[in-house]
């Protein structure tokens, strides 16, 4: 169960990081920061507006892609039953 628990811990870390980015992009940039961001104009479009109606959606897709890719790697770790933590602490319970 050693590797199982540390892999789960890593999954939770992954989820937390992705959710923080999600919140920053969806709410920080696209809503609460929108008026400020609108002062920046990129290729004719106010940035706040573009984030709220296009950019945020692209980021959401990217976040799930990253989640799927990293999760596959964590699955592989679970299967081989080895993680860096295991190598460093022989016999220690997590």
């Amino acid at each position: 169960m050693n590797s199982g628990k540390s892999v789960w811990k890593r999954r939770k870390q992954l989820i937390s990081v992705l959710l923080v980015v999600w919140a920053i992009v969806a709410f920080g940039l696209s809503i609460f920061g929108a008026e400020k961001l609108n002062e920046i104009v990129v290729a004719g479009m106010p940035l706040g507006f573009w984030m709220a109606q296009q950019g945020s959606i692209f980021v959401f897709v990217l976040l799930i892609l990253i989640f799927a890719l990293v999760s596959d790697r964590l699955d592989a770790q679970l299967r081989t039953g080895a993680t860096a933590d295991d190598d460093a602490k022989p016999g220690a319970a997590t």
Partner: peptide, 28 residues
């Protein structure tokens, strides 16, 4: 969205952002 302008984002983000929650917190 056409009539709401910027504020249409509630539907654009609202109906897409939840998929991140689904993928990370529920589906698997």
């Amino acid at each position: 969205i056409s009539f709401m302008g910027f504020d249409g984002t509630v539907y654009l983000m609202g109906w897409t952002g939840g998929y991140v929650l689904l993928a990370l917190l529920l589906a698997p």
